[in-house]
Design a protein around this nucleic acid. Structure first.
Lengths: 236, 236
DNA sequence: GCTGACACGATTGTCAACAAAAAAACTACG
DNA sequence: CGTAGTTTTTTTGTTGACAATCGTGTCAGC
């Protein structure tokens, strides 16, 4: 169903899921916007969903909270985070700090094999976009950014980008216009062209523009933050 | 004893420490190099050290592991991480990606009050440096970078910088020349001068140079990684 | 009819005992 | 005297039950 091709990370697959896998699955569900901001993540429900003990779930939720993807209210439980406008600003500021340089490094270091992987990925993005597969489109456009970080060859930065992309999905879910999807795939195409042309400077600039485009399509002044919890939940 | 002036974060001080506090304390201990790379973090010992239940410690260690500051070996326990040369490269690449822009933003946004705080901090750094208080000097020079992220006004980035600074302490512990301390405080002085002159471009460039200086003083080709574990443990 | 307190149910947080695995110590053998 | 195998001990991982807290529903009083 929603299984992604996970080539690596197959070490602990005896019969139970590790906490890292659970975290990954919840990350994906949030990127796909199957889990909207503010959704309650009941321990019991998650225990049944993943067929694991409560402790494992508890640890996973703690991990997610440490990435600020989940909010942990004492004695109340875990909820999918609802970033404020201020937090949204911070996330995009961080992305603008990191990802243009990621694009530059990736463009400098990409092998021919990497370019082929990128091309293949863009094909999938186009398919999803034209086939009105909104979920797939969103997930793939997030994965594009992670793929770049992977090509850049820096695990530290990859982890940061993964967190930022996931939080961006939440932000778009709250502040985004309903019809508009995550990234415009034409932007991704242009970045890829810079890769093909071996032009790191262009890749840097295009990524910068791309992120600014996304941010401009948000309404960060619109919904008041105080009511955002309830509003976000009920306008699903 | 070794309590640092923690102005904020005094919410849960009834009688037990929260996991966030424990994580913070261990972070500080690693920055101070009281906990060398490879040191074993036994659950029982930490339980006694912090006077908390085993579960709290367990969660704290998981949090630290998720920041790659602690290595968690199944059925073996928790150890302070021993970054490889490759990881060291990645950490510095990430810092060079983020911190020059942090310096720029901080320079643009610093209030007069921020400048005073910076000046006060540099005074402390000088004292520690000239008074041969190596531990204090290292801790303070790390805090300088965090202070900049705080002034930049971005909590997301602040958390990233905190993680990177802590890991840098481990890296210096492994790959640094014994006598050389963390940062040269003259570099910090120059950055502060750029702040005073309201010159964000200079601040950006100086931070970039500063980080490169630190990296150049490491011997990332020197000690083989295989022996680093044992060596690091026994030269406490 | 509406507002307050009270009690119930459900969920989360914590603890202690138990099981499993690895490290250490000891013994026997080469 | 060194080494390999075995037993002991320590440490980690997991499960289950229990305690505390919060949200909800009910009922009495105004």
């Amino acid at each position: 169903m929603d299984t992604v091709g996970n080539t690596a990370e197959q070490d602990t697959r005896d019969d139970e899921l590790g906490e890292e896998e659970i975290v990954e699955r919840i990350f994906e569900a949030i990127i796909d916007q199957r889990l909207p901001p503010g959704a309650k993540l009941s321990e019991a429900a998650l225990c049944e969903a993943f067929s694991v003990g409560r402790m494992r779930i508890r640890q996973s939720l703690l991990l997610l909270a440490s990435r600020e993807v989940v909010e942990l209210l004492p004695n109340r439980g875990a909820f999918v985070a609802s970033p404020s406008a201020e937090q949204a600003r911070e996330v995009f500021e961080a992305r603008l700090m990191i990802e243009p340089t990621v694009a530059r490094l990736a463009a400098e270091r990409a092998t021919d094999d990497d370019l082929k992987k990128l091309e293949q990925h863009l094909r999938l993005e186009h398919e999803a976009h034209h086939g009105n597969k909104r979920r797939d489109a969103i997930r793939l456009s997030g994965q594009f950014h992670m793929l770049l970080a992977e090509i850049a060859g820096n695990a530290v930065v990859l982890r940061m980008v993964k967190e930022l992309v996931t939080r961006t999905s939440l932000i778009i879910g709250i502040f985004g216009s309903p019809g508009v999807s995550n990234c415009r795939d034409e932007d991704h195409d242009e970045i890829f062209n810079a890769f093909s042309a071996r032009d790191p400077d262009a890749a840097t600039r295009l990524m910068s523009d791309h992120l600014r485009h996304i941010q401009e399509h948000l309404e960060l002044n619109g919904p008041a933050e105080g009511t955002s919890d309830l509003v976000a939940i009920f306008r699903k």
